[in-house]
């Protein structure tokens, strides 16, 4: 089983001189090794935080979500099973799930701060773009996304970054009920196969 590599070979990311093996780090974390966790943090924090910001949008809440996710990653580090996927896939699943839960519960409780958030969006767009572009992997992913049909790509992005359910995505894209889930799945499969990750 070939897995998503944490860092593209030869391209140092996020200041890490040599890519640490995330699976090894998780194993050490599971034994309570806080240094290993600090290394893990440095290796993945931009992706963890960036994902939370993209989904949650409100920077303060995104930080909270990232912090919660890191705590959960630490607590569950000993339970990571390399037979079931890549370390990055595993930990970003935790981040994504928390981010989606946060946007949905925030909407369910109130929409009162929508205006405030729209007017106070202190995300540094330059540094965001810079961090993303610094990653060769990001370019490869963008290229791979180009190979999806526009509907597949849109459905996938609304689901993953928007945090919408497939039923909501179907309505937003004027798709017949029940077809958005197929577009999302097809899009992911194409992305997976183009990038050569997963099983």
């Amino acid at each position: 089983m070939e897995h998503l590599r944490p860092v593209t070979a030869g391209v140092p990311q996020e200041g890490a001189p040599a890519a640490p093996d995330l699976a090894d780090l998780l194993k050490l974390c599971g034994r309570g090794d806080q240094n290993a966790f600090a290394q893990l943090y440095d290796a993945v924090s931009a992706r963890v935080h960036g994902l939370a910001v993209r989904v949650v949008r409100d920077p303060a809440q995104a930080e909270e979500v990232a912090q919660e996710a890191f705590l959960e990653i630490w607590k569950n580090s000993g339970r990571f099973d390399p037979a079931k996927g890549s370390p990055l896939g595993w930990l970003l699943t935790i981040v994504h799930r928390k981010s989606v839960d946060r946007v949905r519960s925030a909407e369910a409780s109130t929409r009162r701060d929508t205006t405030y958030n729209q007017q106070n969006q202190p995300v540094d767009h330059d540094s965001t773009a810079e961090a993303a572009q610094a990653s060769l992997e990001a370019h490869r992913v963008r290229a791979a996304l180009e190979s999806l049909t526009p509907i597949q790509r849109e459905a996938l992005e609304l689901a993953y970054f928007g945090g919408y359910t497939h039923t909501e995505v179907a309505t937003m894209l004027d798709l017949p009920v029940g077809t958005a889930k197929t577009r999302i799945r097809d899009g992911l499969i194409r992305l997976r196969d183009t990038m050569g990750v997963g099983a």
């Binding site: 998503l4 993209r54 990055l88 961090a131 499969i189």
Partner: peptide
Amino acid sequence: DASALLAETSAAAP
């Protein structure tokens, strides 16, 4: 694993 690739495009240092 495939979906985690999408996060590569939104990396932003905290």
